[in-house]
Simulated scan of single mutants.
Amino acid sequence: MTDNKHVYRNIFIAALMAMVLAGIYMTIGSRGNWSYILLLRGKKLVALTIVSICSTTATILFHTIAQNRILTPSIIGMDTIYIFFQTISLFLFGHNHWLLQNEYTNFFLSTLSMTFFSLLLYWFFFKKFPGRIYLLLMTGLILGTFFRSATSFLQVLIDPNEFLILQNRLFASFNNVDSSLISVSMFIVLPVLIYIFCKNKVVDVLHLGRINAMGLGIDVDRFNLKLFISISMLVSVSTALVGPVMFLGFLGANVSYKLFKTYQHRLLIVGGWFFTISFVLFGQILIEHLFKFQTTLSIILEFVGGSYFLYILLKEKEAA
């Protein structure tokens, strides 16, 4: 049986590390200019926290549904839908159109397009092929490839000057987050997190596998649909807020499994939050004070997360 004292100790250490890094980030190089800190860095800190929480929670839940710790929600093509939406909007209307200029409109339409696509995909398989989660994932992977190809074709036709504007939206950025979108994101994310923690014991049972969960009286397909809705909303909000961050949730989830070693999702998720926040804060500190904004945080996230992904793949191959 899991030693909860050991788990709580590790979570406390992760939380302490996150708070220390948050304090360093908010005060380093400030020279007492607190208005600058609260206005600019405070906004970034909240955005970093929201994205870290959304990415980690969505990935852990997705692993539980798929019974596979290598897959991520991006496999069903949600990030490609975001990129396709931004590209086709710019291609059809130009960067001066209200659809792209109005941050609220762009945020809501991006979120709705990603959520609608994922739910439509899952609803179809929920009705036609219940329980065949890997068929769902394979179809999502194929559709994601299709949208990626269509996006590449449209980007070739876009005016080079407008393509530069598009690139700013396609790379995750915490430096230009609209503070008004942060409150909207929290309004969407908070009810989802409350629902997940209210159902954490059911998610723990789902971790035992489809057959065992059904034997314990859980309507697996219906509950999977509800979890999938939660995952879609979390990933959609995170992506629409700062852009695609493919490997961040994967890194946070898998490190959480290693550090906390428990089947209880409420502990895994909370511990994963603190680790992911710490990692992102450390990366942002490097970007601002070591690299002097010569690179972006998304590059560090994708490099470290992608490297860890390859490490996990090689380790699984050796174990097999």
Score class of each variant (00 low, 15 high):
I50R: 01
R222H: 10
N175V: 10
I60V: 07
I11T: 00
M114P: 12
L119A: 08
P73C: 12
H289G: 04
L225W: 09
L241W: 12
G23D: 10
I13W: 09
I88K: 08
S55M: 15
F116K: 06
I165D: 05
L143F: 10
D178P: 03
I24P: 07
A213I: 07
K317A: 07
N4P: 01
A320I: 07
G271P: 05
F260L: 05
F228G: 04
G131C: 04
T2Q: 12
V280A: 11
A47Y: 05
E103M: 11
L92G: 03
F107H: 12
M19L: 15
I65M: 05
F153K: 11
L190Y: 02
S55L: 14
I37F: 08
L112M: 14
L90N: 02
T295G: 13
S256Y: 13
I158V: 06
L166V: 11
F303I: 11
V245M: 15
F125L: 10
D204L: 06
N254I: 09
R222K: 15
F116P: 08
N10S: 08
V192H: 09
F146R: 01
A319R: 14
L241Q: 10
F223M: 05
V220G: 01
Y122G: 08
L166N: 06
F129Q: 07
I182S: 01
A319I: 09
A253P: 09
G249M: 10
F125D: 01
L121G: 07
I65F: 04
S183Y: 14
A47W: 09
L225F: 14
L109K: 09
K43H: 05
K43E: 08
L193T: 07
V192N: 07
D204R: 02
A320Q: 13
R41L: 06
K201V: 05
K292C: 04
T239V: 08
L38H: 04
S152H: 06
T59L: 04
Y8M: 14
L313P: 02
N224D: 12
I76D: 02
I133D: 03
K5E: 01
M246C: 13
S256A: 15
L40F: 15
W273Q: 11
T64Y: 00
L241G: 12
K292P: 01
A22F: 13
